[in-house]
């Protein structure tokens, strides 16, 4: 094998093309599923089921991570703020970072792990066992039947889970600050309320909605185009998690730059 420098560029070019294809595929999946939202039939039951799966069933893991995130964050910031005698900033800084960044991003990542991979695996299995073909032969639009409810319920449920995350996180930090670090509880609350703006929370929720769309669209896209049996399904699930997680972090950067 001789070394051909041009091969590097060919490789990069090929990867880049694949990336663009992937992006195009994901985006068109999103547009299709969003468009089909307004076309009958409307299947409420499917939406509810997905809402239960994405929202209700994720609430425990979100509450758990939220509580610990809040507690750890309060503990860590307390070290720094104590140096400056600025303990009163612990509450606000925890609340602000939860509302603006940690809430939506961590919720997004948790839900990606739980829901995004599950969607990819489920649709992937349906794909390789011809269930999607079966749907199609029953003159049912598989995108509308499978993807639209998943995307919509994720867009709705992610902000809701983020509210839970923010709330429990602040409670966790309150617990840490008041019971373990000995700060005054009322001060903690009033400082927090003073520093946090509604805008911070709502923008965080907006971010969460975008993340919800990313998680569902990527998961469904990867599953819907899964190939080659069980292995293909596993690969789809893994890729869905990787792509969603990275996309969430990238999107977070741009959303932060854009919205704040």
């Amino acid at each position: 094998m001789t070394f051909r420098p041009i091969a590097i560029f060919e490789y990069i070019g090929a990867r880049f093309t694949t990336l663009l294809e992937e992006l195009g595929g994901i985006f068109s999946t999103f547009l299709q599923s969003a468009g089909l939202l307004f076309v009958p039939p409307f299947r409420m039951r499917l939406f509810l089921k997905q809402m239960e799966f994405v929202g209700v069933e994720s609430s425990f893991i979100v509450l758990l991570t939220g509580a610990f995130t809040g507690m750890v964050f309060a503990l860590q910031t307390s070290y720094a703020f104590r140096l400056f005698g600025a303990e009163n900033l612990i509450g606000p800084s925890v609340a602000l970072s939860l509302a603006r960044e940690l809430g939506p991003v961590l919720t997004g990542l948790m839900v990606t792990g739980r829901v995004g991979s599950a969607m990819a695996a489920e649709l992937g299995t349906m794909k390789v066992t011809e269930q999607i073909d079966a749907l199609y032969t029953m003159s049912i639009n598989p995108v509308q039947y499978l993807i639209t409810p998943r995307v919509l319920s994720s867009i709705i449920m992610l902000p809701m889970l983020t509210i839970l995350f923010d709330f429990i996180g602040i409670i966790g930090s309150y617990f840490m600050a008041v019971f373990l670090l000995g700060l005054n509880g009322n001060r903690f609350i009033s400082d927090t309320i003073y520093m946090v703006d509604l805008k911070d929370i709502y923008i965080g929720l907006l971010k969460a909605a975008v993340f919800g769309a990313i998680i569902a669209v990527v998961g469904c896209y990867k599953g819907y185009f899964a190939e080659k049996g069980a292995e293909g399904v596993g690969k789809a699930a893994t890729q869905a998690v990787v792509i969603s997680s990275v996309s969430i972090l990238i999107a977070d950067y741009f959303l932060t730059a854009l919205l704040f």
Partner: peptide
């Protein structure tokens, strides 16, 4: 187009080789 197939498919009943039942 795939969409236009819908009308024709309504007259078809298809059994796939591996059944393709919805396992959910």
């Amino acid at each position: 187009k795939r969409k236009e197939f819908g009308g024709i498919l309504k007259n078809f009943g298809v059994l796939f080789q591996n059944s393709a039942l919805f396992d959910s």
